[in-house]
Amino acid sequence: MSTSAQRFEILLVPRHVKDRGELPSPEAAIRSGIVTATGQTGNSGYPRFVGDGFEADIDPVTRTVEAVLLDGSELDYGLVAIVSERRV
């Protein structure tokens, strides 16, 4: 059985909010969603997670979003997807 997380909450935040040096709260997110592991590996080489309009490759060790699509499209300039610290 894998010890890697099977679900994460992704927060979509403006880059300037992330660049403040503190982890943005869910309240600062423009959009959020819960993603679940698909059992597949994405093009980035990390596990693929999908849900709530997000399709993301996430490093489960560092909790870093390595690649992301939102509603099938790349993010607009100035937006960043991060994994919430909140456990789901």
Rank of each mutant, 00 (worst) to 15 (best):
A37T: 10
R31Q: 12
L79S: 06
T36P: 01
A29G: 06
L11A: 03
I58P: 00
G51N: 01
D76V: 13
G33E: 07
G42H: 08
K18A: 15
E66I: 13
G72Y: 04
G33R: 03
A81T: 11
V13S: 04
S25T: 09
I82A: 03
S73C: 04
Y77I: 14
T41M: 15
S44Y: 07
G51H: 02
G78M: 10
T41I: 15
R15C: 11
I30H: 06
I10M: 07
R15H: 10
A81F: 10
L11S: 03
A5G: 09
R63Q: 07
A5T: 04
P14K: 03
S2I: 12
V61D: 01
L11C: 00
G72H: 09
G78W: 07
G53F: 04
K18P: 11
L23K: 11
V83L: 02
S4Q: 15
R48N: 12
F49T: 00
P24N: 04
D57I: 06
G51E: 02
S84Q: 04
E27Y: 05
H16K: 08
G45D: 09
S84L: 06
T36L: 13
G72F: 05
R86I: 15
S32Q: 02
L75M: 01
V50L: 15
D76Q: 09
I30Y: 03
T62M: 01
R31V: 12
R31Y: 11
E9M: 12
V80N: 06
G42A: 14
R48M: 15
P26T: 08
Q40F: 10
G51F: 05
V13A: 02
L75C: 09
